[in-house]
Design a protein around this nucleic acid. Structure first.
Length: 461
RNA sequence: UCCCCAGUAGCUCAGUUGGCAGAGCAGGUGGCUGUUAACCACCGCGUCCGUGGUUCGAGUCCGCGCUGGGGAGCCA
């Protein structure tokens, strides 16, 4: 059996090839008098390759019936194409048909709406746009690991199942083997005593606290995996299951943290621009005309850095009208963040040093006692893509903060321990992987950068 | 969870003051052609989201529900 060749490799060839085989799916077929043009795509890249099927083929009558979506193996010769639109084509010597796609194949040779394609999520990766999204997703995921590995970060697999009652970020999904009725316990005892882990258990909302423990042992670490939020968020920027990249660095303060976050985002954008050029080109042409400008801007210009106080001052002075009042001590609203990144600065902005009362317990209290060493990276079009902070390393201050934010510190004894035995300044952040993908593709709905998205009321496929 | 918009052929949509359900694409047949979102001719294609109401008559107006989308909140 002849080995199959990926179309991606063939298109890069600088010489004809006498004999090869490709396997893929028919995108379109056009008939000429004595032969047929078949465009075959195998998913390895955006482009397909043009196959010339002459009427001398043994099964030419069948070949002429090949429809969009049909699966084939084509053996033949790679030769220069006399046509204008492509350099190479394959002159077929044999076409094996795995299966015809019948006429009710939902994907046509035309533009479909994203809404329709979501309803056929099992087929949409066969389209140009979604093939591109998921090739870019794969390339970016791979590069994240390479980026950290190159910088001597240790990759930590933090748990998906957690016993922490509250990790300080959002609503949690319950994980249980109990049946719904079993949760009632007549004698007033903890109903979860009989559950699988003997206590209330949830899906993780962040690997940060566990990552901190490893940073305080291994220096620089990161996690990259799924996280779950049971929030009833119905927006194009939220999903119930999404992936986060969370570096955590010992001996690192907020300024170093911000510098690292910026370097990370810029590296990733630059990498996608060069390594996924063809797919990014598709998005720049059909999805977001300003995509290349936006991404070039991110790669070339340093991010703006302003304190929360300065951001509030800018917003107060601005002539723009906001539906939410802006005042010191209140969190920035989406409209405020968008104004900063899209109207005022027109480039990514890092806002830092937020009021302590609007931020979680683990963020380090600054010397002014009023603010914490937090930072958010806001990018045009997406909003917040990174949230991070320097962590509170002082045990007594941390205890105060936990009390202040109404947390039960008994379940965090292990977290507190890390502040008793060789505690050091350390920092980290979380990058929403899907939001990054929205940024580099121009895709405006998070459901369209996740293979099988989970959102409130929707868990098909 | 709140506010707004939408749901008509396989897909994308039009459908006027309420009066016989339409087009393009896809599919089928034939023609033409080193074509490339091919082209030309002909053919078929409907639970007008569901439900109740108003009316001589509802795709169209009204109530309720379902689904999808956008915005907000929450957040990454």
């Amino acid at each position: 059996m002849m080995n199959k060749t990926k179309i991606k490799r063939l298109l890069l060839s600088d010489t004809p090839i006498a004999s090869l085989q490709i396997r893929g799916w028919v995108r379109t077929r056009r008939d000429a008098k004595t032969f047929s043009f078949i465009e075959v795509n195998d998913g390895s890249c955006l482009s397909g390759i043009q196959v010339i099927a002459e009427d001398s083929l043994a099964n030419y009558e069948e070949v002429r019936r090949l429809s969009t979506g049909s699966a084939v193996a084509v053996s033949g010769e790679l030769r220069e194409s006399p046509g204008k639109a492509q350099k190479w084509e394959i002159l077929a010597t044999r076409i094996h048909i795995y299966q015809f796609a019948p006429e009710d194949y939902p994907l046509q040779k035309k533009r479909h709406t994203d809404e329709f394609l979501r309803s056929i999520g099992h087929l949409r990766p066969r389209t140009n746009k979604y093939g591109g999204v998921f090739r870019i997703r794969s390339e970016a995921a791979h590069e994240i690991h390479r980026f950290f590995h190159e910088r001597d970060f240790i990759y930590v697999h933090t748990p998906i199942l957690t016993g922490s009652d509250c990790e300080g970020a959002g609503e949690l999904f319950r994980a249980t083997t109990l049946e719904p009725g079993d949760h009632k316990e007549a004698d007033g005892k903890d109903p979860y005593a009989h559950d699988f882990f003997g206590q209330k258990t949830h899906l993780t909302v962040s690997g940060q606290l566990e990552a901190e423990m490893f940073a305080l042992a291994l220096g620089d670490v990161y996690t990259f995996g799924p996280t779950f939020r049971a929030e009833n968020s119905n927006t194009r920027r939220h999903a119930s299951e999404f992936w986060m990249v969370e570096p955590e660095m010992a001996f690192c303060d907020l300024a170093e943290n911000m510098a690292f976050a910026e370097a990370f985002v810029r590296h990733m954008v630059a990498h996608v621009l060069t390594r996924c050029e063809e797919d990014v080109g598709l998005f720049a042409r059909f999805v977001d005309k300003s995509l290349l400008d936006t991404l070039g801007n991110i790669v070339e210009k340093p991010f703006v850095r302003i304190s929360y106080q300065a951001a509030v001052d800018i917003l107060k002075k601005s002539t723009a009208t906001f539906s939410y009042e802006i005042s010191y001590g209140k969190d920035l609203q989406t409209e405020h963040e968008r104004y900063l990144a899209e109207t005022h600065f027109r480039q990514p902005v890092i806002v830092h040093d937020y009021p302590r009362q609007i931020k979680p317990f683990y963020m380090r209290v600054n010397d002014d006692e009023k603010t914490v060493a937090a930072m958010d990276v806001i990018v045009p079009g997406i909003g917040e893509i990174i949230g991070g902070s320097q962590r509170e390393e002082r045990a007594d201050v941390l205890e105060t903060r936990m009390a202040e934010t109404g947390m039960d510190d008994s379940s965090y004894w292990w977290y507190m321990d890390s502040r008793r035995y060789g505690s050091v300044p350390h920092s980290g952040f979380g990058l929403g992987f899907e939001r990054f993908l929205m940024l580099v593709t121009g895709v405006t709905n998070i459901r369209d950068v996740i293979p099988f998205p989970r959102t409130p009321g929707s868990i098909d496929f």
